[in-house]
């Protein structure tokens, strides 16, 4: 049986488009609202990245930091985040869920406990921003044993040798960071160059689903139509902040954006 993440990529491929991955922070701006946002955007997105907020994030830009601090300030706890996922998984349009966060949260929960809880609540994959290869080898194997996708990251600074080793050790999906930037940076590299790197990775192993993230927004997304998948995060977090500031409903506004993103790549 195909795992849900692979199935999502396969379905998108059938429609001759990249899979759309969204990133929102769990508990932003409240537990209830972040669940509603997940439910609303899963009408248009194929895979949902759920950010596990951390207060010393070394790779996140201003938009995602704002979302994370808002959520932490509202008292979000790791167990609340698991609950949001399991509630979401009960909804009728549920999609695969990938946690994205920093290793200390997993370390404090205990690797084994964390994975058990992921499995139980329906988390399908993990992106751990500060657990690179080869440090992640043992944990990544543990994930595999628990049928959870450990998603390796690749960046423009990754050497060819590393690209090969990391791809070899990766599971079904890999994540290419488009440029040297924190999340939410403006696309400062030409799409042509990004796609050249993307193709280099695909050549190493065409069977791995490779998504591109960082700098992907409504404005840039249509330039990357011939890829396996695209991640949009900061633009969505920014929209939540904007809606709150204007006393509008973030659920409606965010799902409008995600629906537009989907149209641009369909």
């Amino acid at each position: 049986m195909l795992n849900p993440i692979n199935l999502a990529f396969k379905n998108a491929k059938k429609e001759k488009r990249p899979a759309l991955l969204t990133y929102t922070v769990a508990g932003d701006s409240s537990k209830k609202q972040s669940l509603e946002i997940l439910k609303a955007i899963s009408n248009y997105a194929d895979i949902l990245e759920v950010g596990v907020p951390h207060n010393t994030p070394v790779a996140d830009g201003g938009q995602i930091q704002t979302s994370a601090y808002r959520s932490i300030k509202n008292g979000i706890k790791m167990n609340d985040i698991f609950k949001i996922v399991s509630d979401f998984k009960k909804s009728k349009n549920s999609k695969p869920v990938i946690f994205m966060g920093y290793y200390n949260m997993i370390f404090q929960y205990g690797e084994n406990n964390f994975l058990k809880k992921c499995k139980k609540s329906g988390v399908n994959g993990l992106i751990v921003v500060d657990l690179p290869w080869p440090e992640n080898k043992i944990f990544s194997k543990k994930c595999k044993k628990n049928s959870i996708n450990f998603i390796q990251l690749l960046s423009p600074t990754t050497s060819n040798k590393r690209l090969k080793s990391i791809t070899k050790d990766s599971h079904d999906m890999i994540y290419y960071i488009s440029m040297l930037s924190t999340t939410g940076g403006k696309l400062k590299v030409s799409p042509k160059k990004i796609l050249a790197n993307y193709n280099k990775i695909k050549k190493i192993n065409p069977n791995k689903n490779c998504v591109i993230g960082f700098g992907i927004t409504e404005k840039t997304i249509s330039k990357f139509k011939n890829t396996d998948g695209l991640v949009v995060g900061s633009q969505i977090c920014k929209e939540i902040t904007r809606s709150l500031n204007n006393r509008q409903n973030p659920v409606i506004n965010v799902s409008k954006i995600v629906s537009k993103l989907r149209k641009k790549i369909s």
């Binding site: 290793y103 500060d130 080869p134 600074t157 590393r162 040297l180």
Partner: peptide, 20 residues
């Protein structure tokens, strides 16, 4: 891997910083 006493230190960094 840069750990003192097997457990302190290390390199918990984003992939982008591995090369530099």
């Amino acid at each position: 891997l840069g750990f003192w006493g097997g457990k302190f230190g290390g390199n918990f960094v984003p992939e982008t910083l591995k090369k530099p």
